[in-house]
Simulated scan of single mutants.
Amino acid sequence: MVRPTLRHVSAACLLGLTVAACSPTIETRGNLAEKARLDQIRPGVSTRDDVAVTLGTPSTVGTFDENTWYYIGARTEKTAFFQPEVVERKVVVVRFDENGTVADIQELDQSAGQQVELVERTTPTAGRDMNFIEQMLGNIGRFSGGQGGVRQPGMPRR
Rank of each mutant, 00 (worst) to 15 (best):
P43A: 08
V116T: 09
I41T: 08
V51R: 05
E77V: 01
R89W: 12
T63S: 15
V19D: 06
V94G: 05
R95H: 02
E85M: 11
T47D: 06
V87C: 05
D97T: 00
V94I: 13
A20C: 12
S111M: 00
E107Q: 15
R75K: 14
F81L: 15
I26K: 12
A103C: 00
V102H: 04
T101D: 01
R29N: 14
K78L: 05
T63R: 15
V91D: 10
T68H: 07
L108P: 03
S59A: 11
A52G: 05
L108G: 02
L55I: 03
T63G: 14
C22A: 14
L55Y: 04
A33E: 07
V94R: 06
E107V: 15
T101K: 10
S46N: 03
I72W: 07
S23I: 12
Y70N: 07
Q40R: 13
V45W: 03
E88V: 11
W69C: 10
T47Q: 03
P84I: 02
L38E: 09
Q115N: 12
R29T: 14
I41P: 04
R42F: 07
P84V: 01
I105D: 03
R95K: 11
S111Q: 06
L108S: 03
S23E: 10
P58E: 06
Q106S: 13
V86C: 09
A103V: 00
N67M: 01
P84G: 05
Q106N: 11
S23L: 14
D104H: 09
K90D: 07
Y70H: 14
P24Y: 08
E98V: 00
W69K: 09
D39N: 13
R75M: 14
Y70K: 05
D50C: 09
D109S: 13
V87M: 15
G113L: 11
G44E: 00
A33M: 10
R95S: 08
W69Y: 15
K78T: 14
T57W: 11
K78G: 07
D39V: 06
K90C: 07
G73H: 09
D104M: 03
T60G: 08
V102A: 06
P84Q: 02
N67F: 01
L32A: 07
T54K: 08
Q40V: 01
A112N: 08
R95L: 01
Y71V: 03
E85G: 07
R42I: 14
L32Q: 07
P43Q: 07
V61E: 10
Q110S: 13
I26A: 10
D49V: 06
G100K: 03
G62W: 03
V91Q: 12
G62P: 04
E98D: 06
E34D: 14
